[in-house]
Simulated scan of single mutants.
Amino acid sequence: MQNAFRSAVQQSLCKISETHLDSIETAAEKLLATLPAAYSIYHPLLLIPSTILERAAWNRLLLGYVIPDQSNNLAHFDLGPFFVQVAEATSTTHVAINSPIPTHNEPHAPDTDSSQVPFNAAADITSTNILRSPTNLIPLHGDFGPPLPSFPNHIPSENDFEKAFWVSTTQNGIKQTWAPRYTMFSKGNVTEKARLLTLPSVQNLQHKPWTALDLFSGIGYFAFSYARAGAARVLCWDLNPWSTEGLRRGAVRNGWELTCQVSCLLRVERSSDAED
């Protein structure tokens, strides 16, 4: 049985003219034959794996669309109608290429208009990506929210949160919420999340109040499992404001009461003329 993504692409290839396909030396049949089978849907988002850019035909087609100024002079072609139909056929509203989380943030060139950069804005200076920000996400269709510098160069406001695009999924009966342009999500730890629900050490505490502490809690990957397992209180801490906002929204969706306290840890340096 053909998967939903492949079926959607097959239905939508008619939106790309043969003239354009000829200009990049490919054809609809070649695109369909080299389409990755894997994909993920976190409603209302369709995520395409980054391996699609390793397929020559798709690489030529997509690079001319998402980054025409860096596409080796490939002709730019508006693939908007194509992705609109792909989104409709998969019952989604947004489409993006999901790439591995980079280990470092890379700055934009000084003369680059960040509003035209398809990738999520990175830090103003090259630095270790300690927040595990998905700066290599490539939006293809839909409004994912404005490009923003990474924390701590920019502390997101309530207005930033409202303008962002949020998605959700349910694992082990627990709802999780995040903004894919600013926050990572790993579906691979679903087994570990389930294991936490039945840990003997957790089961032995069912008859008395107990507290769980989750450092670097993210959007609630494991904190929510402890809450579902019966913890009277779960204390969470994280560096990434986008993750804590996702955790807050997820807790609300799960029907849990919560108290949020946001604080910034700043390094205080003594001036050179300060007394010892």
Score class of each variant (00 low, 15 high):
Pro149Lys: 05
Ala109Ser: 13
Asn98Phe: 00
Pro149His: 06
Asn153Lys: 01
Pro139Gln: 07
Pro152Lys: 12
Ala109Glu: 12
Pro118Tyr: 05
Val95His: 03
His94Met: 03
Pro149Tyr: 03
Ser133Val: 08
Ser115Val: 07
Ala121Tyr: 09
Asp124His: 11
Ile125Trp: 03
His94Gln: 04
Val117Leu: 11
Leu131Ile: 07
Ser127Phe: 09
Leu140Thr: 08
His108Met: 09
Ile125Arg: 10
Ala109Cys: 07
Glu106Thr: 12
Pro152Gly: 06
Thr112Gly: 09
Ile125Met: 06
Arg132Asn: 14
Pro118Val: 04
His108Ile: 04
Leu140His: 09
Ala121Leu: 14
Asp113Thr: 05
His104Met: 09
Val117Ser: 11
Asn98His: 01
Ala96His: 05
His104Asn: 13
His104Thr: 13
Ser115Leu: 15
Asn136Asp: 14
Ala123Phe: 06
Asn129Glu: 03
Leu137Ser: 09
Arg132Cys: 11
Arg132Ile: 04
Asp113Asn: 14
Pro147Gly: 12
Ile130Ser: 13
Asn136Thr: 13
Ser150Ile: 10
Ser114Phe: 13
Ile138Arg: 07
Ser150Tyr: 03
Pro110Phe: 00
Gln116Leu: 08
Leu137Phe: 12
Pro152Ala: 04
Glu106Val: 09
Leu131Val: 07
Pro107Thr: 01
Pro134Phe: 00
Asn153Ile: 00
Phe119Ala: 10
His108Val: 02
Leu137Met: 14
Phe119Asp: 04
Ser157Asp: 13
Asp143Asn: 15
Ile101Val: 15
Pro134Lys: 00
Phe151Trp: 11
Gly142Ile: 02
Ser133Gly: 10
Pro110Ile: 04
Ile138Phe: 04
Ile138Cys: 00
Leu131Met: 10
Ala121Lys: 13
Pro149Asn: 05
Ala121His: 12
Phe144Cys: 00
Thr128Ser: 10
Ser115Thr: 15
His104Cys: 07
Leu148Cys: 13
Ala121Asp: 08
Thr103Asn: 14
Asp143Leu: 03
